[in-house]
Simulated assay, not measured.
Amino acid sequence: MADKILYTTSAVNTGARAGESHTPDRSYEVNIDVPKEMGGKGEGTDPEQLFALGYSACFHSALDHFKKEDKVKNKSQVTLTVHLVEDPTDGGFKLKTEIEVGIENMSEDEVLSLAERAHEFCPYSKATKGNIESTVTVVPYEEGK
């Protein structure tokens, strides 16, 4: 049975890590630049930041799904950190992620349970499973973070 496609999108990049990326309808455009830490000017967004933005939003949606299922109305936050690291197997690079989840007024065990369920459910987590080393941890909820 074929997958039922619910949504399709694409992006266009020119100039690689020192260029520009946009959606075909130009509703989103961003300058791309190499971070200063890697010898670039750091005058734009880098692919790892874009990945972190998308993954954190997707993960938080998965978390909200289970909060709703469990009738949890507490505010929550997801901080997703992406590390670009050397890959000793081929001399290139690979990604590692850290997912930090905070939910106000909940115990660490309760938050971890929801976060682990979200990690199994999130499409980004499914896509990266077995390919990207990823950790999920509970952090205190911080208003306005």
Rank of each mutant, 00 (worst) to 15 (best):
M1A: 15
I5P: 05
I5W: 11
I5C: 01
L6K: 03
L6N: 08
Y7S: 02
T8H: 12
T9M: 13
S10Y: 08
V12M: 14
N13A: 15
N13M: 08
N13V: 15
N13W: 15
T14M: 14
G15R: 01
A16V: 11
A18H: 10
A18R: 12
A18I: 14
G19Q: 10
E20H: 13
S21D: 10
H22I: 03
T23S: 09
T23F: 12
P24F: 13
D25N: 12
R26N: 15
R26W: 13
R26E: 14
S27G: 06
Y28L: 15
V30A: 13
V30G: 09
N31D: 15
V34F: 01
V34G: 01
E37Y: 07
G39M: 06
G39E: 03
G40R: 07
K41F: 12
G42S: 10
G42C: 08
E43F: 13
G44L: 09
T45E: 12
T45R: 13
P47Q: 00
Q49N: 05
Q49M: 06
L50Y: 01
A52P: 03
A52M: 01
Y55A: 04
A57V: 11
C58H: 09
C58S: 06
F59I: 11
A62L: 01
H65N: 06
H65M: 07
H65L: 12
F66T: 00
E69T: 07
K71P: 06
V72A: 12
N74Q: 10
N74S: 11
N74G: 04
S76I: 02
Q77W: 06
V78S: 00
V78E: 05
T79S: 12
T81D: 05
H83S: 15
H83Y: 13
H83K: 14
H83I: 04
L84H: 05
L84E: 00
V85N: 14
E86M: 10
E86H: 15
D87N: 13
D87M: 11
T89D: 15
D90Q: 06
D90H: 11
D90V: 08
G91C: 07
G91R: 05
G91F: 08
G92I: 14
G92N: 03
G92F: 02
G92P: 07
K94Q: 09
K94V: 06
L95E: 00
T97F: 02
E98H: 09
E98W: 02
I99R: 03
I99D: 01
I99M: 02
M106K: 00
S107W: 09
S107D: 07
S107C: 09
E108V: 13
D109Q: 12
V111Q: 00
V111T: 02
S113V: 07
L114M: 02
L114V: 00
L114F: 05
L114C: 05
A115M: 03
A115Q: 00
E116N: 13
E116R: 11
R117M: 11
R117Q: 09
H119E: 04
C122K: 01
C122E: 03
C122H: 05
P123G: 02
Y124T: 05
K126N: 06
K126Y: 07
A127S: 11
T128I: 10
K129S: 11
K129M: 11
N131I: 09
N131H: 11
I132G: 05
E133S: 07
E133Q: 13
E133V: 10
V136S: 04
T137W: 08
T137D: 05
V138E: 04
V139Q: 04
Y141G: 01
E142W: 08
E142G: 02
K145W: 07
K145L: 02
K145D: 05
K145M: 03
K145T: 03
K145Q: 09
